[in-house]
Amino acid sequence: MNHAWIDGRPGSEPEAVAAAAALIGGSRLPVVTGLATDIAGIRAALGLARIAGAVIDHQASAAIYPAVTAIRDSGMMIGAPAEIRRRADRVLIVGDAFATSPDLPDFLFRHEPDLGKATRGKREIRWLGGPESSADIPGAIEPVVCPADGIADALAMIRAAAAGHRFGEGPIAGEQAEAVAAWMKEAGFGCAIFAVAGMDELAIEMLAGLVFDLNAETRFTSLPLFGPGQAFGAALAATWTTGFPLRVGFGRGFADHDPDLHEAGQLIASGEADLAIHVSGLAGAASPEPEWSGRLPVIAIGGGAASWANPPKIRFDAAMAGRDHDGVLHNERFGSFVPFAATQTGTLPRAADLLAAIAAALGDVTTGAAA
């Protein structure tokens, strides 16, 4: 069964790999994006970007970048979900935290805390700026009504109250801010939970600062939820590989981090990038045609590209991580990387193997050109 195409025509895998390497070798500025794949695929994509002098950026990085920026610039205390499940006696949920993680509340809150100081009583939950209904969340919840665009200001009020500082009027009553601050300070082990896609950089930095402040008197942590697609896993892999989170360019011969200059969508829209390598090899994740498809040649690796309105220049079908092969994925419930086993067998190559083969062929192309 064929799994490689060049200009819409079936070809062998070696032919498509050689064609992809030649296309990348002749590119002025390629971008590697998509990156919905396992950790092996992400590492292979980073390796290809380094050899190609490309920019690399996850397709969902815009949604998580406020949190990445806050973590990079100011730091953040982040807890493991399992520890929060068993220790947290005071939980502040912020905004529509579980919009992309609907199964997580059952794991976190169905079990009463039973470790450390939390054993003194049952868990108490307050929800700042949450949806109107919280019927699907286990446990009693006290709402703190706040408009979505007022969450950063509300957090600033609570942080000021916790520090004993004066503050003015805001989206919540001053008495509410003081009550929430006092309640958080009384935690044996507390946690603030939020979805990064629903908050801007200022709100996230304010929440991270509040958690830091609370640790002067008690134990408190946070649980940012990054959603599906492996965007945060890719950012972590890029950090330990290059020293920077994603939006990294290798055009100057070394890893160069710039969150504005190396945004893949902007590079494609401006015409600065002239080739895209798009990786989409994650089981269960939607793989729509990128909005920039048709603006430049594309090398597509993974599922979904066969139905694009603008067919890729070169296309490889690949095994899906989480279904067709063993590997490692970032798992939100675990809070880190976990191994997974294949649930079915197949004959397609992994995205990581295809990317490595293209990188090897590109190395041969560049070596030959230099000679």
Rank of each mutant, 00 (worst) to 15 (best):
P228G: 00
P228W: 04
P228Q: 03
P228A: 06
P228S: 06
G229D: 04
G229E: 01
G229Y: 00
G229N: 05
G229M: 04
Q230V: 14
Q230N: 15
Q230W: 08
Q230T: 12
Q230A: 13
A231S: 09
A231G: 07
A231K: 07
F232S: 06
F232C: 09
F232Y: 09
F232D: 02
G233N: 08
G233M: 08
G233H: 11
G233R: 11
G233V: 08
G233L: 08
G233F: 10
A234H: 08
A234V: 06
A234E: 05
A234K: 08
A234P: 00
A234Y: 08
A235R: 11
A235K: 09
A235V: 11
A235M: 13
A235C: 14
L236N: 14
L236M: 12
L236V: 13
L236Y: 13
L236D: 12
L236P: 15
L236W: 11
A237C: 14
A237D: 08
A237M: 15
A237N: 11
A237H: 10
A237V: 11
A237W: 09
A238D: 07
A238C: 08
A238S: 05
A238M: 09
A238L: 06
T239V: 13
T239D: 15
T239E: 12
T239R: 14
T239S: 12
T239C: 15
T239H: 11
T239L: 12
W240F: 13
W240G: 11
T241A: 12
T241W: 10
T241F: 15
T242D: 00
T242Q: 05
T242S: 05
T242I: 08
T242R: 04
G243R: 12
G243A: 13
G243H: 14
F244H: 03
F244N: 09
F244A: 07
F244C: 09
F244P: 07
P245G: 01
P245H: 03
L246F: 02
L246E: 03
L246G: 07
L246H: 06
L246V: 05
L246S: 00
R247D: 03
R247G: 00
R247S: 02
R247P: 01
R247N: 04
R247T: 02
R247H: 09
V248C: 05
V248F: 07
V248T: 04
V248P: 00
G249T: 06
G249P: 07
G249C: 03
G249Y: 02
F250Q: 01
F250W: 09
G251I: 05
G251Q: 10
G251C: 14
G251P: 10
R252V: 13
R252F: 14
R252P: 11
R252I: 14
R252C: 12
G253A: 03
G253H: 08
G253P: 09
G253I: 09
G253E: 02
G253Q: 07
F254T: 12
F254G: 15
F254A: 12
F254Y: 15
F254E: 15
A255G: 12
A255P: 11
A255S: 11
A255W: 09
D256C: 00
D256S: 02
D256N: 06
D256G: 01
D256P: 03
D256A: 06
H257T: 00
H257G: 00
H257S: 04
H257P: 00
H257A: 05
H257W: 04
D258K: 01
D258P: 04
D258W: 04
D258C: 06
D258V: 06
D258Q: 05
D258H: 06
